[in-house]
Design a binder for these strands. Structure first.
Lengths: 165, 165
DNA sequence: TATTGTTATACTCTATAACTATA
DNA sequence: TATAGTTATAGAGTATAACAATA
C-alpha cells in the first residue's frame, strides 16, 4: 500500500526514502548545507563507533595529538565549544587514558593536554577509518569540486565570524 | 596579555577569533562542512528569533504552507525527524495558531496539516529575513560557486541516503 | 581585577520503546 | 497485523551563571 494518492507530494522520491516536498527550502543555501552535514555526521558517527569515539571526542583527540601541550581553553576556542562543555570531553578522554592533564609549571591554573601512546594510536586508526568513510561519500565529487566547496565553506566561516549576532 | 608564548599554536589566527590548530582536521571534508553549517545555523537562529521560530519550527511551517494537507508522518519523513519529535513541533505551531490539524475523513488516524492566514504571513516574513541573512553570509560567493556547492551537497545527500549504516 | 578550570543547570535536538485508535 | 499519532524517556550537544584557585 503506497501513499501516492496525492502525486504532488512525491515529485522525486528517491530510492533513499528522501522526499522533496518543497521549493522554498530548496532556495535556501543553509537547508542544503544542513542536510548534507547530517548525512556526513551520521556516517562519521558510524565510522567512529568501533573506536568508541564521538565527533567531539575525536576532534578533541586529533587536536591534542597534533598540538601537544594545548590548554583546555585553547582547545575549546579551536573547537567552538564552551569551556564548561570542554571539561566533560576531556574527562572522557582522560578516563580512557588516551590523554593526560599535565600541570603547567608557569601557570598553575592551567592544564597542558598531551596524548598518550594509546591516544596517538587510536587517533591514527580512527582518522584512517574516517577518511575511508568520507571517501565513500565523496567519490562522486571531482577534486576541483571538492576544492571549490571547501573554499566556499571557508569563506562562509570567515564572513560569519565577523558578523555580529 | 596575549597567549602567544607558543607560536606554533597560532599559525593563522583570524580577526574573527577563529584559530587553526590543525592539519588533520583541515583534510577532512566533514570538518569544514560542520563548521560552516554551525556558522549558518547560528545566523539563521538570529534571523528567526524576531519571529519566535527555531530552525525546526520554521522548516515545518514552510513545508506545511507549501504543501497544504500534509500528514505529520510525511512531514517527519521530509524533515528527517522522528515522528515523536514531530509532535512537539506541530504542537508549538498549532498552539500559536499558525497551523491547524484537520482530521482526514478517509483516514481518521491521520491529520491533514494546514497553515492559517497568520501562519502563511509569518512564513513569508520569516523567509524574507532568512534570505537576507543568508545573502549577507554568502555575498562573497559567486553564483557559479553556489551552484557548484549545492550540486555537491545534493550529491553527498544522494550517496549518503543509499549507504547502509 | 581577570583568567583557568570547574560545577550546576537548562534548553534544544535526537532516538527508542510502548501505548491508543484506527485501518 | 499494520499504520498515524502520541507519551514518556534518555542521550547528546549547547549555553549561561557562579565558584575556587591562581595570575
Amino acid at each position: 500500500m503506497t501513499r501516492a494518492e496525492d502525486p504532488k507530494l512525491e515529485p522525486n522520491k528517491a530510492q533513499s526514502g528522501v522526499s522533496q516536498y518543497n521549493e522554498t527550502l530548496d532556495g535556501l543555501f543553509g537547508y542544503h548545507l544542513k542536510r548534507a552535514t547530517n548525512v556526513l555526521q551520521l556516517d562519521l558517527k558510524h565510522a567512529l563507533k568501533p573506536f568508541d569515539l564521538r565527533m567531539l571526542t575525536y576532534t578533541a583527540l586529533v587536536l591534542i595529538v597534533d598540538n601537544p601541550g594545548l590548554r583546555q581553553s585553547q582547545l575549546a576556542e579551536a573547537m567552538d565549544v564552551e569551556r564548561p562543555n570542554m571539561v566533560v570531553i576531556i574527562d572522557t578522554l582522560e578516563s580512557r587514558e588516551l590523554i593526560i592533564r599535565d600541570r603547567v609549571p608557569t601557570d598553575r591554573r592551567a592544564y597542558a593536554l598531551n596524548a598518550t601512546l594509546a591516544g596517538r594510536r587510536l587517533c591514527e586508526k580512527a582518522t584512517m577509518a574516517v577518511k575511508q568513510h568520507e571517501e565513500r561519500l565523496l567519490h562522486q565529487l571531482s577534486p576541483e569540486m571538492r576544492q571549490t566547496v571547501i573554499a566556499a565553506l571557508t569563506l562562509i566561516r570567515k564572513v560569519g565570524g565577523g558578523v555580529a549576532p
